[in-house]
Amino acid sequence: MNMISDKNLWFLEQSSNEQLSTLFDILTLEQNGNYRRRERLSNCLEAQLYEGDYFKYSDRIALELQYLANETVGDFLRQHQLPYSTILENIFNVLQIDFKENTPVIQLEEIFIDTLCDRSIGLKNSGVKELPFNVLLSEGMTTKIRRSSALRVAVPAVLYIALLRLDSSKNINIYDYVDATR
């Protein structure tokens, strides 16, 4: 596997096994609990060797997002790796969230969370910053997102990663946001 390192996902190495377990589940399981058809993570060598010690293969977990976010079957089969920033920008385009080119990923993630909060409440610039993961996710899972196998996994994964980064950078408790469902 020719792994391309993505600096925007390096912080996952500092996440706890519990946090990475939730991300693993988001990447491998559909909402109904069945395995995603395109996922490879649950059967990869690292998952077989380390099982529940997700910390030891956090880079492979990040790589799975880069694979699964491919819209075309050809890119998925060729294991084309989309940079995290491109995945985020693709989500913004589909959800019609305005952003400026070359905006740092951390700011894009904050815009993403703020926009989902505002849309959930129905007020622009509401100032509300803390809504549960499931509420934010339901706002992001539009019909167009649900129809795309790539975006159906990318939106919840990116939302969770954004909350993880917010947790690590601002010393908030992610579990105020996320009620991890498995």
Rank of each mutant, 00 (worst) to 15 (best):
I97R: 12
V94T: 14
L20A: 07
T143D: 11
H80T: 04
L9K: 02
I113N: 11
P104T: 01
I97E: 12
I87K: 04
F24E: 08
Y177T: 00
L151Y: 10
T28I: 13
I174S: 00
R165E: 12
L88C: 08
L159R: 04
L12C: 05
T28D: 10
N102C: 12
I161S: 02
E110D: 15
V105M: 14
N173Y: 00
E109P: 05
N32M: 13
Y160T: 04
P132D: 04
M141A: 06
K129R: 08
N134S: 14
R78G: 01
I145M: 15
A157L: 15
Q48V: 08
L29C: 14
N8W: 11
D176N: 01
R146V: 04
F133W: 09
Q79C: 05
A157D: 05
E30V: 09
V128D: 09
V178S: 13
L151R: 07
G52P: 02
F99C: 09
L164I: 15
F55A: 07
I172Y: 01
S149D: 15
S16E: 10
S168G: 07
V105C: 14
G127R: 02
F24K: 11
E130A: 13
L166Y: 13
N90P: 07
E110W: 09
L82S: 05
I26E: 01
L166T: 08
F55T: 11
K56W: 06
I61A: 01
S58H: 10
D6R: 03
V153L: 02
F133I: 08
Y54N: 00
E13K: 13
E13R: 03
K170T: 06
S58E: 03
K100L: 14
R78L: 10
R38S: 05
I113Q: 02
C44V: 05
N32D: 15
E139T: 12
R38G: 04
Q31S: 12
N34F: 11
E51F: 04
L131C: 14
A162C: 12
Q66L: 07
L159P: 06
I145Y: 11
L68D: 02
I161K: 01
D59V: 06
L23K: 02
E46D: 04
Y177D: 01
L49P: 03
S169G: 06
E39A: 14
C44E: 07
V105S: 10
A69T: 14
R182P: 12
E71C: 10
F92Y: 06
P83K: 11
E109D: 14
L20V: 03
L166R: 07
L63W: 01
T181K: 15
I111K: 14
E30R: 13
T22R: 00
D176F: 04
N70F: 13
I113Y: 14
L45W: 11
I61T: 00
I174F: 04
L159K: 02
E51V: 11
R147H: 10
I113A: 03
W10N: 04
E13P: 00
F99G: 06
V135F: 13
R119E: 12
